[in-house]
Deep mutational scan, measured.
Amino acid sequence: MRSPRTRGRSGRPLSLLLALLCALRAKVCGASGQFELEILSMQNVNGELQNGNCCGGARNPGDRKCTRDECDTYFKVCLKEYQSRVTAGGPCSFGSGSTPVIGGNTFNLKASRGNDRNRIVLPFSFAWPRSYTLLVEAWDSSNDTVQPDSIIEKASHSGMINPSRQWQTLKQNTGVAHFEYQIRVTCDDYYYGFGCNKFCRPRDDFFGHYACDQNGNKTCMEGWMGPECNRAICRQGCSPKHGSCKLPGDCRCQYGWQGLYCDKCIPHPGCVHGICNEPWQCLCETNWGGQLCDKDLNYCGTHQPCLNGGTCSNTGPDKYQCSCPEGYSGPNCEIA
Rank of each mutant, 00 (worst) to 15 (best):
H303L: 15
T174A: 07
D69G: 15
N108Y: 11
D318N: 08
W167L: 01
D140G: 13
Q172H: 07
N287K: 00
Q83R: 13
L283H: 04
C324F: 01
Y181H: 00
E70A: 13
D149V: 02
W288L: 09
N162T: 14
N230Y: 08
M160R: 10
I233M: 14
T315A: 09
F126I: 04
I39F: 15
V185A: 03
W167C: 01
C212R: 10
C271Y: 01
E48V: 14
P91H: 10
Q182R: 13
G195A: 04
K295E: 11
K27R: 08
P317H: 08
I275S: 00
D204H: 11
Q50K: 04
G290R: 02
F126L: 03
Y132F: 05
C29Y: 03
C78G: 02
A58G: 09
C229R: 02
S329A: 10
H273Q: 08
G90W: 04
T6A: 15
G47R: 04
R201G: 12
G223V: 10
Y191F: 11
S150G: 10
C54F: 14
T169R: 07
C78S: 00
R85L: 13
W128C: 11
P100H: 08
R203I: 07
P248S: 05
L283I: 06
K65E: 15
D72G: 13
C212F: 02
P61R: 15
D63H: 13
G309W: 13
L109H: 04
M225T: 12
G226R: 10
P163L: 03
V185E: 01
N105S: 10
S239C: 09
G226D: 07
C234S: 05
K154M: 09
K319E: 13
C265Y: 03
S98Y: 06
S239G: 12
V77A: 15
C238S: 06
V176F: 10
F199L: 08
S32W: 03
I266S: 12
P148A: 08
I120T: 02
Y181N: 00
N217K: 09
H209D: 02
A58T: 10
E180K: 07
Q172K: 03
L122M: 04
L134F: 01
G309V: 12
S244Y: 02
W224L: 09
D204G: 12
K241R: 13
N314D: 11
D140Y: 10
G62R: 13
V86G: 11
N46Y: 13
P267Q: 07
E334G: 09
G243R: 07
R2H: 14
L79F: 00
K295I: 07
P91S: 14
N118D: 11
W139C: 09
Q34H: 09
D250N: 05
L307I: 09
C22Y: 12
N51K: 03
R201H: 10
Y320F: 13
G103A: 15
N287I: 01
G175D: 03
T145P: 11
G8A: 01
L134V: 05
H157R: 05
Y299H: 04
G195D: 07
P240R: 13
D144H: 12
F35V: 03
H209Q: 03
T67A: 14
G243W: 07
C55R: 05
G104A: 14
G62E: 11
C245F: 01
H273D: 00
G97E: 07
C312G: 01
P279T: 03
H209Y: 03
C262Y: 02
T87A: 12
M225I: 07
F75C: 01
T311I: 09
N215T: 06
E326D: 11
K76Q: 14
N53I: 13
D189A: 09
Y328D: 12
D204Y: 11
C265S: 00
R25Q: 14
Q168K: 03
N215D: 04
G289C: 08
L20R: 00
L247I: 03
V272I: 15
D69V: 14
G223C: 09
Q236P: 12
T302A: 09
V28E: 05
T286P: 01
C54W: 06
P13L: 14
C234F: 04
T99R: 00
P279R: 08
Y261D: 10
T73K: 05
A211V: 10
E285Q: 02
L37F: 07
A111D: 08
H268R: 10
A31D: 00
T219A: 05
C306F: 01
E326G: 10
S84Y: 06
P4S: 14
H209P: 09
T169P: 10
V45E: 08
Y328F: 15
G327E: 07
P100T: 04
K218T: 13
T73R: 14
A127P: 06
P269S: 07
N173S: 12
P317R: 08
C22R: 02
L17M: 12
G274S: 01
G56V: 15
D294Y: 05
G316D: 11
D63V: 12
C71G: 15
C282Y: 01
S96L: 06
F35S: 00
F94C: 07
P148S: 12
L134M: 02
C92Y: 05
N230K: 07
S98A: 03
S239R: 12
C71S: 11
G330E: 07
C253S: 01
G274D: 04
P163T: 04
S3C: 15
C234G: 13
R117C: 12
S125G: 10
H242L: 08
S98T: 05
P100L: 07
G90V: 15
C29G: 05
N173H: 11
D144A: 05
C187S: 01
P4T: 15
A336G: 11
V146L: 10
D72A: 15
N314Y: 14
P240A: 10
L18R: 01
